[in-house]
Amino acid sequence: MSNAIATWSGDYYQVFAIILFGIGFISLLLHKNLIKKIIGLNIMDSSVYLFLTSFGFIDGRVAPIVADPSVPVQMETYINPLPTGLVLTGIVVGVSVTAFSLALTQRLYKKYHTLNLDEIIILAKREEV
């Protein structure tokens, strides 16, 4: 157990990312309000980005931007640039998803005048009959 606590306190970025993931997941599951659900989804997004980026970080190294390109570049100077590049793509896709789901929410509100998902499902069933 003490071993586990030592590992967790060393990997604190990953631990906090997983806690954030749990918070986002539970608010996605339990909230009935669509806006809250979208915010929970965004929190989950951020936690995954945090988890991914923390793997690229290496102690004592700097961001992968070369100050003096005339000197040959040493790998030991810079952190791993690959996770950063992947997460950069993810952030912009996250914005697109948010905008799309907000547009859908607006249309649902215009039709049913409520944001409660349960009520929306009941009203939609009522229309079908």
């Binding site: 923390s54 690229g56 700097v62 961001a63 952190i79 950063t84 997460v87 950069l88 952030i91």
Partner: peptide, 15 residues
């Protein structure tokens, strides 16, 4: 703090 300034700029402008 994670040495990813590109992400910082994008997150501040977008998020």
């Amino acid at each position: 703090l994670l040495q990813a300034p590109d992400l910082a700029i994008t997150e501040a402008a977008v998020g």
